[in-house]
Design a protein around this nucleic acid. Structure first.
Lengths: 113, 113
DNA sequence: CGGATACTAAACCAGATGGTTCAGTATCAG
DNA sequence: CTGATACTGAACCATCTGGTTTAGTATCCG
């Protein structure tokens, strides 16, 4: 059984996003659920190849799947990328502040001249 | 020369973030600039090891470095993770909408009963 | 000058990753 | 029942990754 991490560390989620095929899978699933075959076809890779990618996404909770007859259909969720969004926003805020600080410094230099 | 990608594709940036040591480097650099030795010491890895990680971060523009005497000091920037933040927010919005839709559906079912 | 410090380049290594093929099982349609 | 479809597990492969060691070069300090 593929157990998805309740609190997957940041870097594991980013690792799941570190592949263009998996990004494409997620974007496809944003539109609608899809089977392994549909994902594989669109990506131009084999069924087992697609299945492996889906398993990685399942592993970090970005995708969940259910068996429907002989097909396996993939849905987004349950992970919502909260922690990742928060980390990136925090990072961006630090850069922002640093930039502001530099701006003010330059302003002061301008005044003094 | 390590050329940083002006428009690094999403997955390349995520790949740079897909390692706990590199995440730690970035968080350290949020506090203040640091040399390769400082980063290596804190991470408990060799100098060449740390240098490689820094090079990856440079590769996607998350870190820039300058040589100061015999030391190489690392700073955050110039990349601000704009595209990554935007992608994640878009993704989250899709999930949000889907959740809302489900919520309304459940409400309607409740009313009908 | 001479030694210590900070880095770098290159070679190497084990394990992970992204892909394949092949041989199965399970389900659906006629 | 039979054949086609959808998936799965296992084995395999090349390449990438994260780390090392070793042997250098460049800089600083006394």
């Amino acid at each position: 059984m593929v157990q998805y991490q309740v609190q997957a560390p940041l870097h594991e989620t980013f690792a799941a996003l570190a592949d263009p095929t998996r990004i494409a899978f997620l974007e496809r699933l944003e539109r609608a659920d899809a089977t392994i075959t549909q994902l594989a076809d669109r990506a131009g890779i084999s069924l087992p190849g697609a299945r492996k990618h889906v398993r990685v996404l399942e592993g970090v909770g970005l995708v969940s799947t259910r068996k429907q007859g002989r097909a396996r259909v993939c849905t987004l969720g349950p992970r919502r990328l909260e922690r990742e969004a928060a980390w990136i926003e925090g990072y961006r805020r630090v850069l922002e502040e640093r930039f502001d600080h530099l701006g003010k410094l330059l302003d002061r230099l301008k005044e003094e001249s």
